[in-house]
Amino acid sequence: MSEPRDPLRSLFRQAADFGQDRAEPVPAARIAERGRRAHRRRVAALAVTACLAVAGGGAAAANLLPDRPGPTIPAVTPSPRTSPAELPERTAPPTPSSTPTSRSTEGASTAPTTGEPSGGDPTGPPPSPGGTPSTTRPPDRPGSTETEGETEGEGGNGAGAGTGGGDPETSAPPATSTTEAP
C-alpha cells in the first residue's frame, strides 16, 4: 500500500467525493422494479425460445420420418400402367378403384336410363362433378359385371382409356375416350 500523504491519492479522493456528493442515486425500489422486469423479460424469452425449439423439433421430426405407405396411390397407379396382358391377373385387387371411373364413363353413355343429373352429364360445369358421381355410384353396382367386361375391353383397346380410368379426380378424360371409341 502507498503512504497516506500521497498528493495523487488525495486528488483522486477529492474527485471521487465531488462525484459522490453530486450523485443522485435512483431509489432502491426503482432498481428492484427494473430488475424484476428484466427477470420477467428473460423468463418470457426463455419460454418463447423453448416453445419455438419444441415446435421446430416436432416439425423437423415430422418431415424426417418416412411417409407411411399410402393405400390408394400404389393400388391405383400400377393397374393402368401394367401391360394389357397382365391386366386380368391384377384386376382382382384394384377393381374397386378402377371400376368407378369406368362406371362414370358408362354413366355418360347411359345417362338417360339412370337419370342421374350430375354424373351423367359430361358437359356439365366443372365444379359439380367432383363429388357427386362418387355418391351416385352405389346404385350402379348391380350392373358392375357388364361394366367390368367393358372396361377390360377398353383396356385392351388402348392405354389412354386405362390411364384415364386410373385417375379418380377427373371424370372428363374417360368421357372423351368413350365418345371417341365408337
Partner: peptide
C-alpha cells in the same frame, strides 16, 4: 464517485452504475 473518476462524466457514471445494479438484482 469511483465511476465518475474513471469515466469523467457524472451522468454517464450514474447511468452505468444504476444499470449494473439492475443486472446485479
Amino acid at each position: 464517485g469511483q465511476l465518475y473518476v474513471m469515466l469523467g462524466d457524472l451522468h454517464e457514471a450514474q447511468d452505468v452504475v444504476a444499470e449494473a445494479y439492475v443486472k446485479g438484482w
